[in-house]
Design a protein around this nucleic acid. Structure first.
Lengths: 186, 186
DNA sequence: ACTGTTTATGCAACTAGTTGCACAAGGTGA
DNA sequence: TCACCTTGTGCAACTAGTTGCATAAACAGT
């Protein structure tokens, strides 16, 4: 139940249309809360109906016509409420770890190539984060807002660092395993 | 679409009833693929209908009567197929990171207490993983199956280590921030 | 006997996210 | 000027996961 809050945050950072939001979700917010454009448009409709945001009255709202939104005071209040409310962490689900556990019983055949592919994806993501860090967070004392955003980026960098290291270890382990793995014994 | 495969894996490790599966999801598989008992029973029904598992014919199947399942050859084949097939990583969603980003625009009031609570939860989880490692994976050369399972546990340990360190850094940063944060400026 | 608790199975309704597609406006090139 | 591509908005159906509750047997206490 956090997509509306992700949208409120993005809109507070900058008033945007649906498509602009979609683009920013692909680059920034979406790194830790992804959403498709269909979700975003649906949610914008709900948020507007609930009086948390409103469309900027600049242009006539027609299909194929850009429509920008801004956050209303009620929206900011709701976001502040949600941010400060205590929340339990949601259980994670990670298909790759599950597949490794499955490989322990049905064999590792074919898995190594995909581990390699995942390693590449995580390396690329890590490089992207590090570029953002270099560009947007040069060393030096910053205000609270910048430091908080930097903290979030650090989480992304450290997570990708973890994954690349773990995947490298996994691949090294695979190299020592008998070909095909446990399935041989079946 | 991985709950069926999580169940197949768990059943291959050990034939179980719905409740036994539920318990094991709470302790072990569930660390990276959680599921409620309702989900598990529903999925067991589907897997049986699809001919991937079957109920052990020992006892009469009545409500309130334990019913154990085992994996059929078709189920093992499907799990092997799924494990070796290439899969894209699913986009993550992390409410805590989103809240931090929101806090950058609406203020950090109330957030610190919850960060502290999350830190405690992750410390507890880390301790639990380390206990499991000590108990189930004593040092020494192991077979492929044990090494794969250890690798999965290492991922859990490293992830929890990341979170505890990141949260400690976040709390240290908070201590230096002006009280309440950016909301002050509003 | 009867009350309550634990173990065990399961259905139904709801919420959130995904996938596939449709529609409209404006620009580009043949 | 017609066919096609891009930009922008949006609906509908589907899939996966969550929440709330119902049912039944076994057992323990009184």
């Amino acid at each position: 139940m956090s997509l509306p809050h992700a949208i409120l945050t993005a809109l507070l950072e900058k008033k945007s249309s649906g498509l602009e939001l979609t683009r920013r979700f692909d680059r920034s917010i979406g790194y830790f809360w992804s959403a498709t454009h269909q979700q975003i448009y649906r949610e914008l409709g709900k948020l507007e109906a609930d009086g948390l945001i409103r469309a900027l009255p600049s242009e006539q709202p027609a299909r194929g016509q850009k429509k920008s939104y801004e956050v209303l005071p009620a929206g900011r209040a709701e976001l502040a409420r949600w941010t400060s409310a205590s929340q339990d962490p949601k259980p994670h689900r990670d298909a790759l770890l599950l597949r490794l556990r499955a490989a322990a019983v049905v064999g590792t055949a074919g898995l190594e190539a995909d581990l390699r592919r995942h390693l590449e994806l995580h390396e690329r993501q890590l490089a992207e984060y590090e570029e953002i860090e270099e560009r947007d967070f040069p060393p030096g004392r910053d205000g609270a807002e910048v430091r908080l955003r930097h903290l979030v980026l650090r989480a992304g960098i450290d997570l990708e660092t973890f994954w690349t290291q773990w995947l490298r270890r996994a691949l090294a382990d695979f190299a020592e395993l008998p070909d095909g793995g446990p399935a041989e014994q079946v």
